[in-house]
Computed example of a mutant assay.
Amino acid sequence: MSAGGSFVMLRCAVLDDYQGVALGLADWSRVRATSFRERFTDQDDLVAALGDHEIVVAMRERTPFPAELFERLPNLRLLVSTGMRNAAIDLAAARARGVTVCGTGSTSTPPVELTWALILGLVRNLVPEATAMRTGGPWQSTLGADLHGRTLGLLGLGKIGTRTAEIGQAFGMDVVAWSENLTKERAAAHGVRLAPSKDALLSGSDIVSVHLVLSDRTRGLIGERELSLMRPTAYLVNTSRAAIVDQAALVSALRAGRIAGAGLDVFEVEPLPADHELRTLPNVLATPHLGYVTELNYETYFREAVEDIDAFLAGSPIRLLT
């Protein structure tokens, strides 16, 4: 765009670039790009940082964009989300303010791999055993659980759930799945048994893994009652969305030993406060929302974010979120 006959590059803010890698993974030369590594926890601070930016690239759902934020950013013209789904963006408010919202590709493979890293780490006590090796602690202090012959219960059988099921089957596990719309035929097509109910899945599984999209129907789906149905030897793994599991109820169950443990990659508040109990409970294996954080995904995110910007500047936006 021009001002006084000279070309003026639009300003682009890349939010929540925790590792400081975004600007090195794509060619941002057509915009004046600035990377923000620290998460903004105060909206006033966020508005002050973004006020003169016309373009913002948002990393997943780390920074919400509600209606009031769009109202406070009159210069914003383009918002790019990494991935093609972002429940933290008020798309109606964006449209009302004339802000174009685009997305990028994202592969489901990394969350599947992290799910199994958490499962294996939990059942074989890898963190305490590895820590003991480093610190001169006891040699073999735990007894690992077996996967072969055990039951893996999947809440959700979409792309991630299906791949998780395949790996469970490779371990020789009996895989059962449930969601409100899952049919016996679709489950069988993936070699999976359909649980007669959510309660039956919870009570009959040795490992329960969550792979559902967060919605009004799934928010708080696993609460105190549901956790009480699980076996005391069972593990819960959540790499999907924190709000699907009642966090207070989960902490209570873990603290009391009502379930054997939990593998968690998602939390109601992120970053998780330094003094939060989930950081210290001995039966929790927690990671800082690493599900999609891999080289291939990040290269895709930022390369396609730049493609979205270029298409927008050319007057033909692509990968629109609706």
Rank of each mutant, 00 (worst) to 15 (best):
L50A: 06
Q140A: 15
P138M: 01
A93S: 13
A94S: 07
G105F: 08
G103Q: 03
H148T: 15
W139I: 09
W28L: 10
L91M: 11
F40G: 00
R77L: 03
Q140G: 00
E61M: 09
L46H: 00
S35N: 11
G83L: 10
L76E: 07
L78H: 12
A96E: 15
R134I: 02
L25E: 14
Q140C: 04
T131G: 13
A88C: 09
G136H: 03
S141H: 06
M133E: 11
T151W: 01
M133W: 07
D27H: 08
A58K: 11
R124I: 10
P64E: 06
R60S: 07
L73A: 09
A93F: 09
P138D: 09
M133H: 10
E38A: 15
Q43E: 15
A130V: 07
L118G: 13
R72M: 06
I89T: 04
V31I: 05
T41W: 07
L69W: 00
D146H: 12
L46Y: 03
R97N: 14
G103Y: 02
S81R: 10
I89F: 06
A67N: 04
A132H: 06
E54M: 07
R77F: 01
E129D: 10
A130R: 14
L126D: 05
M133A: 15
F65M: 08
A26Q: 11
R97L: 05
V57R: 10
A117K: 06
M84R: 14
A96P: 01
T104L: 11
G83E: 14
F70I: 05
L25Q: 13
P110D: 06
G144L: 00
L120I: 12
